[in-house]
Write a protein that binds this DNA or RNA. Structure first.
Lengths: 140, 140
DNA sequence: ACTTAAATAAGAATTATTCTCTTTTAAGAG
DNA sequence: CTCTTAAAAGAGAATAATTCTTATTTAAGT
């Protein structure tokens, strides 16, 4: 993924958020780390350049970034939150044997689903978003 | 849902699990409580008849029931685990304003998805299960 | 009724996350 | 460029959900 400092900075500025070293570092960590890091992965990654960052700050910043739709939270079986820097509509592939989670983009599928639910309404329920979790195994 | 003691007992016997009052009570709670209870809901429900049940026991039993495919765990945004006694293939409707989660059965949709992924293989990934999370609002 | 592996109770321990309060800082105003 | 101030970060205590440990009890087969 592009780890351009200016692009990261821009994301903060666009949301009228103060640009702080901590926020920059956390965003950079999310974009650099693959596999949808948990807070602790981000903290470990950041500690190299920012040894004094407080755990609470990381959680606070993650919350702010989510509120401002700069990142997403991904639910997992284990209950630990994982974070995703990609905001384009996509689904997730969960490995049933490891903690690997991959993004899955499929516009054709999105179209099929959109279409399907436009025809087949669910009684008393208005759909706002559709997320698919595909669980399975990756070939090494 | 049917809250038949013999049916509950059978689920344990079929899995070669010892039939204990605690396990019976926990299963009964899951079938009786609606809206995919969290562990605490189950504990509260059970405490009326079993005031001495230990919290750890409830978590342990829930784990055993999941391992034996008698119940399922449902992921939530908040990270707190919720439990589902329905094992037939189904999806979930998540309310975006409350903690309501409803089961959603749709064989037609399942067929469409099965078909779709039989044609369109995902590179290096073998699908084991497909779960759809529909987030939206319930009418009143 | 006896035996024993399995299950439960009790509560300590752990883990992830949030909260509180103090200090520091980004960024706009002058 | 300095001043001001609201916002952000630091530090660590607090909380919540869940897991773990050890002793005690019990289900169910002999």
């Amino acid at each position: 993924m592009e780890i351009n400092i200016d692009i990261i900075k821009n994301k903060l500025v666009e949301s009228r958020l103060k640009v702080t070293p901590q926020r920059m570092a956390i965003l950079e960590a999310i974009y650099s780390l693959d596999n949808h890091p948990i807070a602790d992965d981000i903290i470990d990654y950041i500690k190299i350049k920012h040894p004094n960052i407080a755990t609470g700050t990381v959680y606070k910043v993650l919350g702010v970034l989510i509120e401002n739709k700069i990142i997403n939270k991904v639910n997992t079986e284990r209950g630990v939150s994982r974070y995703d820097g990609i905001m384009d509509s996509h689904h997730h592939l969960y490995c049933s044997k490891s903690d690997l989670i991959k993004d899955y983009f499929d516009e054709e599928l999105d179209k099929i689903l959109k279409n399907y639910f436009e025809k087949k309404k669910i009684p008393d329920f208005n759909i706002e978003s559709i997320a698919i979790q595909l669980k399975g195994r990756f070939n090494e």
